[in-house]
Write a protein that binds this DNA or RNA. Structure first.
Lengths: 156, 156
DNA sequence: TTGTTTGCAAACCCTTTGCACGTGC
DNA sequence: GCACGTGCAAAGGGTTTGCAAACAA
């Protein structure tokens, strides 16, 4: 994870700090490396995703980006998310009762799923261990082990 | 799991054996206990689900049931699966790149997911252990811990 | 008979696609 | 200029819903 460019996202100042500038340059480089032209739309979306820890739907991302004054279409959001996914910049998550969610953290980790409110919370990989993996089918190899801890509100 | 009624499903004889009869009676009782009228459609679907180990989509179940000569509509399959789900007779699974899948095994277990072919294989609960569960958010309790082991075809 | 359930078709929602226009290089 | 990317609107696929007819009790 790129972590050195993190502190400026809360600021409401109109992007004058050098941090923002180098972030743009960094994002441009990332897109180029992934074989994508750094268009305005892709940069706007990358800026909201890369190096942040988020779980977003295409719709949420669209509304948020549009609200910020950056015009783009929902179709472009979908297409761009798929491209980012192919390049490994985001990962798709699936839970019942929820539409596709894209996770900006592509490193190994797990999730709490609050079923009643369809909310996702990250679980860092190191706070949980899976042992005694069973034998896997012939001709296959493990790509990734993911744990979902389903939570519900405590009764009483 | 109800396991004593399992051997007759391969038979192509037109349902004359006593096993079939008692299975029907058993399914009727299960539906009644769940507060559902044992209609022909619900019994046909229950017969293909309950006490079997399957992962099916609504569409698959519809095609299969229709092919067996039991008329019913796709809408009824969806509605019935949702009712079965509410009663805990089946569970819904979600994987990216796959539409809703219903799992007839509602007991605690895990899954292999063969990403390239969108296939699901069960992992018995006892062949795998999750340890060091992290602290969970205030006011919530663990409902279920599920592990998905994503597999891909071995390269070489 | 009476309240449920079913079937159908239409509605819905999310997502993808085709094509004309715009844009980065 | 040329290829690639975007926006729009329409199509697509899965799932739910409204309502009249069929059915279980």
């Amino acid at each position: 994870m790129h972590s050195d460019i993190s502190s400026s996202s809360q600021s409401s100042a109109p992007a004058l700090e050098p941090t923002e500038c180098s972030r743009r340059a960094c994002l441009t480089a990332i897109l180029r490396m992934a074989g994508m032209r750094p268009t305005r739309q892709r940069l706007d979306l990358a800026d909201r995703l890369i190096g942040r820890d988020r779980h977003v739907t295409a719709e949420e991302l669209y509304v948020e980006t549009a609200a910020a004054g950056h015009e783009l279409s929902l179709a472009t959001v979908y297409n761009t998310l798929r491209q980012f996914q192919s390049s490994g910049l985001v990962r798709e998550l699936a839970f019942e009762g929820m539409r596709s969610v894209f996770d900006t953290d592509t490193s190994r980790h797990h999730h709490f799923y609050l079923t009643e409110e369809s909310r996702i919370i990250d679980i860092p990989a190191h706070t949980l261990a899976v042992t005694d993996l069973p034998g896997i089918p012939e001709g296959y190899e493990v790509n990734r082990v993911e744990v979902v801890v389903r939570l519900r509100r405590k009764e009483h």
